[in-house]
């Protein structure tokens, strides 16, 4: 049984904004699922609908077999990081967590262990207004972990983290997966979670474009051909004429569509010098661009 199950979920704000449009997906237990899409794609709205903060206009969403609001002590079942700035600036980090733990019926001992887990014990007595963005992000993560939940919903957890923090987050997510937790993590910076997730949901403009294991989606996607050439602009024009997808940065090209052999032959036929030609399996970012681009065209 899926831990999170959304069926034909839609959310409209006012008459003009359709934030989420007929989205259906299931999250299997013990998996880390990346919820990917650009800013404004509908990721946050979907996550907030899962925990009953936003009411769907249509469709249903169940978590652990029912509605979030019907769960007994919900924060001990589902932990959510949705708003890293959602703390009173004058309240200490320790008290911010104590307020939530008290309301959720969770003992203060969990506050201490959650603070230790996110490495904030040393500054827990300080007012939140003195925290950096990364520290607030960790505090929000501690808040999600308070109830030792079996499901974690993390909305852009890497926001504000420095490279060291990013590395810490990846280790943290791996540890959560090793403990058998189910994690749904949203991000618009695809590279940051590529090494961590098992499956992805790709959303753009409110519509779910693809879902499944990364390997399965990558298998169906074309490889990216990377080229370095002093005549990159001329090659780009030729490739575009042939309908290829091309991104150029000075003398470097990333090409989607034709194979490396086809690109090499096209360059040779037009007397274009190549300094580099290689075929790469698509990164998560390439995959996203391909899927989003394909759907946009159709």
């Amino acid at each position: 049984m899926a831990v999170i199950e959304a069926e034909h979920l839609s959310k409209r704000f006012g008459k003009k904004v359709l934030a989420v449009d007929d989205v259906s997906f299931g999250i299997e237990p013990g998996t880390i699922t990346g919820f990917l899409g650009p800013n404004g794609a509908g990721k946050t709205t979907t996550l907030r609908m899962i925990v009953d903060l936003v009411r769907p206009t249509a469709g249903t969403v169940r978590v652990l077999g029912g509605r979030y609001r019907d769960l007994t002590h919900p924060t001990t079942r589902v932990g959510a990081l949705l708003d890293a700035s959602g703390f009173h600036p004058g309240r200490s980090g320790l008290n911010a967590l104590r307020v939530v733990s008290r309301a959720a019926g969770i003992g203060y001992d969990r506050v201490d262990s959650a603070l230790e887990m996110v490495e904030l014990s040393g500054v827990a007595g300080r007012a939140v207004k003195g925290y950096s963005t990364g520290m607030k992000q960790r505090l929000a993560l501690a808040c999600a972990l308070l109830g030792d939940p079996e499901v974690l919903l993390l909305d852009e957890p890497a926001n504000g983290l420095d490279p060291e923090g990013m590395k810490w987050l990846r280790g943290f997510l791996r540890a959560q997966a090793a403990e058998g937790r189910t994690v749904l993590i949203s991000s618009h910076v695809l590279a940051e979670i590529e090494q961590t997730v098992d499956r992805v949901l790709i959303i753009s403009k409110g519509r779910l474009l693809a879902q499944g294991p990364i390997a399965q989606l990558a298998a169906g996607a074309a490889a990216v051909v990377r080229v370095r050439s002093p005549q990159a602009q001329k090659l780009e024009e030729l490739l575009l004429q042939k309908g290829a997808g091309v991104n150029r940065l000075e003398t470097a090209l990333a090409i989607r569509g034709p194979s490396s052999a086809e690109v090499g032959e096209l360059a040779h036929a037009n007397d274009i010098v190549l300094h580099e030609l290689l075929s790469e399996q698509p990164s998560l970012e390439d995959l996203f661009l391909q899927i989003a681009g394909t759907r946009r065209e159709s």
Binding site: Y68, R69, P74, L82, S85, F87, H88, V99, V100
Partner: peptide
């Protein structure tokens, strides 16, 4: 201050 998010997560009623 956005604390309502955590308030309603802890007590959805």
């Amino acid at each position: 201050h956005g604390t309502i998010t955590y308030t309603y997560l802890a007590t959805p009623r």
